[in-house]
Amino acid sequence: MLEISIREQDEFIKLGQALKKANLVSSGVDAKMVILDGLVTVNGKTELQRGKKLHDGDVFEYNGETVKVVK
Rank of each mutant, 00 (worst) to 15 (best):
E3W: 08
I4E: 11
I4A: 10
S5D: 15
S5F: 15
S5H: 15
S5W: 13
R7V: 11
E8S: 15
E8R: 15
E8D: 13
Q9I: 11
Q9P: 07
Q9R: 14
Q9S: 14
D10W: 09
E11N: 15
E11W: 08
F12M: 08
F12T: 11
I13H: 05
K14Y: 01
K14E: 08
K14C: 02
G16Q: 03
Q17N: 12
A18H: 05
L19S: 03
K20D: 01
K20S: 00
K21L: 09
A22I: 04
A22R: 05
A22G: 05
N23R: 07
L24D: 04
V25R: 02
V25G: 03
S27L: 00
G28M: 00
V29I: 05
D30P: 01
K32H: 02
M33P: 00
V34N: 00
V34T: 02
I35Q: 03
L36I: 04
L36Q: 11
L36G: 01
D37W: 02
L39Y: 07
L39A: 08
V40C: 03
V40G: 01
V40L: 02
V42I: 14
N43I: 12
N43G: 11
N43D: 13
K45G: 10
K45F: 13
K45I: 15
T46L: 11
E47K: 06
L48I: 13
L48F: 14
Q49A: 13
R50G: 00
R50K: 10
R50L: 04
R50Q: 06
R50P: 02
R50E: 06
G51M: 02
G51S: 05
K53P: 05
D56P: 11
D56E: 13
D58T: 10
F60I: 09
E61D: 06
Y62T: 01
N63F: 06
G64M: 04
E65A: 08
E65D: 05
T66D: 05
V67W: 06
K68F: 07
V69C: 07
V69W: 07
V69P: 07
V70F: 14
